[in-house]
Lab assay of single mutants.
Amino acid sequence: MSIQHFRVALIPFFAAFCLPVFAHPETLVKVKDAEDQLGARVGYIELDLNSGKILESFRPEERFPMMSTFKVLLCGAVLSRVDAGQEQLGRRIHYSQNDLVKYSPVTEKHLTDGMTVRELCSAAITMSDNTAANLLLTTIGGPKELTAFLHNMGDHVTRLDRWEPELNEAIPNDERDTTMPAAMATTLRKLLTGELLTLASRQQLIDWMEADKVAGPLLRSALPAGWFIADKSGASERGSRGIIAALGPDGKPSRIVVIYTTGSQATMDERNRQIAEIGASLIKHW
């Protein structure tokens, strides 16, 4: 058993032996400061991975655009179909130039040979490839079927209504393609630790998130040596930015963190910096 498999397999085991986890309101002070700095709403939640207890939250039940963070949920739905014998990670999917949409750094290189379902999930999560996400959405029946999958998990909040890139429109008060921090954190925890997916599929999902290559300026920039993080970021119109993550010290995840912001006029660099500073406060007061 690899170190990674050891880590995921023991998450339920550690729940019975973990020390009490204490919240630190200092992080919420930073979240509120980020709102002031960005001139935008910020949603935040910090969840204990083992118990599911909410440690801190700010606007946990307000809607925010999901942006590309939905791609983790999408690959969770794909893995659920794999577990049920309805899909194979090794199945190759062929597509054409007409299928390519904006920001497809991986799929645009494989027009001649296509990509496997496994490769598409990797591209969608680690590189946020939009065509990969659309191709995967097609395999499960489209955005409405992803919403149905989430409903069956008990998440009646999170919804996907459109495809890439239209889902990134982020119109104020538009509930399409949105979630709430509390709903996203709970759903992510179920995917990573619950019985919905097999152990192998849970491991695969967290491996893809751990290999994320496009979230460096966010929480990863504040991470001390030896800490673990598996994450997925997102960005969209109207100053929207977000990240969902499982992270913790000693090389294993122990908390879920979800951060969303929307409605800012700030630059992408400034949005990144504010999220990184929230992460730094979280780690300092861990």
Rank of each mutant, 00 (worst) to 15 (best):
V8A: 12
N152T: 14
S2C: 11
T179L: 01
I140F: 08
N50D: 15
D99E: 13
A215C: 04
P60R: 09
F13L: 14
N152G: 14
S128D: 15
D177Q: 00
A170C: 12
E61R: 15
A148T: 15
T131I: 03
P143R: 13
I93A: 03
E237Y: 07
P181L: 02
G90W: 12
W286R: 02
D48E: 10
G43S: 03
I93H: 03
H94L: 13
L19E: 10
R202C: 07
A133S: 09
G39C: 12
E61C: 12
I171A: 14
H94G: 08
V106F: 06
L188A: 05
Q88Y: 15
I206T: 11
S122G: 13
R7Q: 14
K71E: 00
N272G: 07
I243K: 01
S221N: 12
S236G: 03
F14W: 11
V82W: 07
S264I: 06
E56K: 06
R81Q: 09
H94E: 10
M184A: 05
F13T: 13
K284E: 13
A15E: 06
I11D: 03
P105A: 06
L282S: 03
Y260S: 02
T107S: 12
A245Q: 03
Q4P: 15
G226E: 07
L79G: 00
M180E: 12
M268E: 06
S57L: 06
A200E: 15
A40T: 08
A200M: 10
L137K: 00
N152S: 15
K32R: 13
N272D: 09
Q4K: 15
E62Q: 08
N152K: 14
D174G: 04
H94T: 15
T139E: 11
L218H: 02
I93K: 01
V72A: 06
D231L: 04
S221D: 09
E169G: 07
D33N: 13
T112E: 14
R162S: 06
P172G: 10
E145K: 13
I275M: 05
V8Y: 15
I243P: 01
M153H: 09
D48A: 06
E195K: 13
R162K: 04
L191H: 06
F58L: 07
G263S: 10
A182G: 13
W163G: 05
E145H: 12
T186V: 15
R63Q: 05
F149I: 09
E237H: 07
I206G: 06
R118Q: 13
R91Q: 05
R159H: 12
K232E: 01
G242C: 05
Q203K: 15
V157L: 08
S240W: 02
D129E: 01
G85A: 09
K252I: 12
L79E: 00
V214Y: 06
I11A: 10
P65M: 05
P172N: 11
D250P: 06
K30S: 07
S221E: 10
M66G: 00
L218C: 04
A182V: 15
E175W: 09
H110E: 06
P172Y: 08
L223K: 05
K144D: 12
H156D: 13
A266D: 07
R7C: 08
D269Q: 12
P249N: 06
A23V: 14
A211V: 06
I3F: 14
K144N: 12
R220K: 04
Y95N: 00
A183E: 08
N50A: 15
T179M: 00
P249M: 05
D212A: 03
V117A: 02
L55F: 07
M1I: 08
Q88P: 02
T138I: 10
E175F: 11
D83H: 02
D177P: 00
M115T: 02
P12H: 13
P65C: 04
L28Q: 06
L89G: 04
I283N: 02
R92L: 12
A276R: 12
D177T: 00
K284W: 07
P12F: 12
A185C: 04
F228S: 05
E56V: 05
D174S: 06
G251L: 07
K190V: 11
P217E: 12
D48V: 03
L89W: 05
A185S: 06
S221M: 09
W208G: 02
D269H: 15
E46G: 04
H151R: 15
K144S: 13
V82H: 07
I244W: 00
L223C: 10
N130S: 00
E87A: 05
N168Y: 02
R241S: 02
F13Y: 13
Y260L: 08
G242M: 00
A40P: 03
F58Y: 15
T178W: 01
W227M: 01
S68P: 00
A225F: 10
R238T: 15
G226P: 04
R220I: 01
L100M: 09
G43R: 01
G43P: 00
L135V: 12
D99V: 10
I244H: 02
R255L: 03
D113T: 14
T178K: 01
E87K: 01
M67H: 07
W227E: 00
R220L: 01
F17S: 11
A245D: 01
L47M: 15
Y260G: 00
L79S: 02
V29L: 13
G263D: 11
S122R: 12
T139P: 03
F14C: 12
C18L: 06
R241N: 03
F58V: 06
I93D: 05
A182E: 11
F14V: 15
S68N: 03
R176G: 05
L197F: 04
L223M: 11
G251C: 08
R118A: 13
K252R: 15
Q203H: 10
R41T: 08
E237N: 07
L89Y: 07
L282T: 07
E169V: 08
